[in-house]
């Protein structure tokens, strides 16, 4: 019951905070983007390699760039107030449809990288703490250091070379086998096989972060009085480590994980590029490069929603992990 009422309160409070935040994000983004030199007509002419004065004027008119900035902003907000993300003249379709085509892929990649990094990170951290200052700890520390310092896309490329080129086990790019009519188990296997390399590449860095965090949090908890109590009453070492030490060390890790989700969304651009993954990061980058600002604003808006929603979830997760947090 308490969890339900807490959920309600959190959602209401988040909504109250989110609306002005989102409007601020939109207006600020819009104005910042207008400061960027060059516009959509310059891009189209640049990639076409040809233009005439009339074709430039026609493009600007289609994009509404011949209107004053304040009118453009007004138009955008008007559409937004009617729950429309607007229209992309470049792609000749609604921004919502462009984003919705990619959102599932983005969420899939984000979620799997998130789960992988937490699971492996916590496992590594627990092992390192368990074997603290002995050789398994040292060995894993080196590994974690490599994950931390080597760029994820490079590790991804090396993984492609090994698993796609040399061994031929996994596909090197894309999100599914195009045109293959798979069903059931085959469908799942096909998608998972495409997901493995990108999600690991994205997760590597965060595995390192969570592993180090878990290790230090566990070592800190180990020095607490209640651990000595547990040892004094004769509990087995394994039970103490998993139940008492790891359990208590999880709170800072989940907090950090919640904060990192935004970074996960940002870091996805590089991984999406390397693996040809049809996600939103790529869409955002293309939108910047092509000055297609309706699309970019849509992506930024949606990303801020995703981050807000994830924060609410992490908040609730904390309440579930440690009931004392909600008492406050």
């Amino acid at each position: 019951m308490r969890l339900v009422s807490r959920t309600g309160r959190t959602v209401v409070r988040t909504l109250i905070q989110a609306v002005p935040t989102v409007i601020g994000i939109v207006v600020l983004n819009f104005l910042l983007l207008k400061l960027v030199p060059g516009d959509a007509a310059d891009v189209i002419a640049g990639e076409s390699g040809s233009a005439t004065a009339q074709s430039m004027a026609a493009i600007r008119h289609r994009f509404g760039l011949d209107q004053p900035i304040i009118v453009q902003l007004g138009n955008y907000l008007y559409h937004l107030a009617h729950f429309s993300l607007g229209y992309s003249p470049r792609y000749n379709t609604s921004v919502a449809s462009l984003i919705m085509a990619r959102l599932p892929f983005t969420l899939l990649l984000m979620f799997s990288a998130f789960v992988l990094s937490l699971a492996i990170g916590i496992f590594f951290g627990a092992m390192m703490s368990f074997f603290a200052r002995r050789w398994p700890d040292r060995l894993m520390s080196v590994l974690v250091l490599i994950f931390y310092s080597a760029p994820g896309f490079w590790l991804g490329l090396m993984a492609i070379v090994l698993f796609s080129v040399k061994l031929g086990w996994l596909p090197s790019s894309g999100a599914s086998t195009i045109g293959a009519n798979y069903h059931g188990w085959q469908f799942l296997a096909d998608h998972l096989s495409h997901l493995i390399l990108p999600s690991f590449s994205l997760a590597f860095f965060f595995i390192a972060v969570y592993a180090r965090l878990t290790r230090s949090a566990m070592l800190e908890v180990e020095r607490q009085d209640f651990i000595r109590t547990a040892q004094a009453k004769g509990l087995r070492d394994w039970t103490i480590q998993t139940k008492h030490v790891l359990g208590n060390a999880l709170i800072p890790v989940t907090t950090m994980a919640g904060l990192n989700l935004g970074h996960l969304l940002g870091g996805a651009i590089v991984v999406e590029t390397v693996f040809g993954w049809p996600g939103m990061g790529r869409l955002a980058l293309d939108a910047v490069m092509s000055r297609d600002f309706n699309v970019l604003l849509g992506v930024l808006l949606l990303s801020s929603f995703v981050v807000i929603v994830v924060n609410v979830i992490v908040d609730l997760l904390h309440a579930w992990l440690d009931p004392r947090i909600e008492a406050e």
Partner: peptide, 12 residues
């Protein structure tokens, strides 16, 4: 959000 509270939690 409750980030600050969460950081204090493990000591209790």
């Amino acid at each position: 959000m409750t980030i600050s509270t969460a950081f204090h939690a493990p000591t209790m």
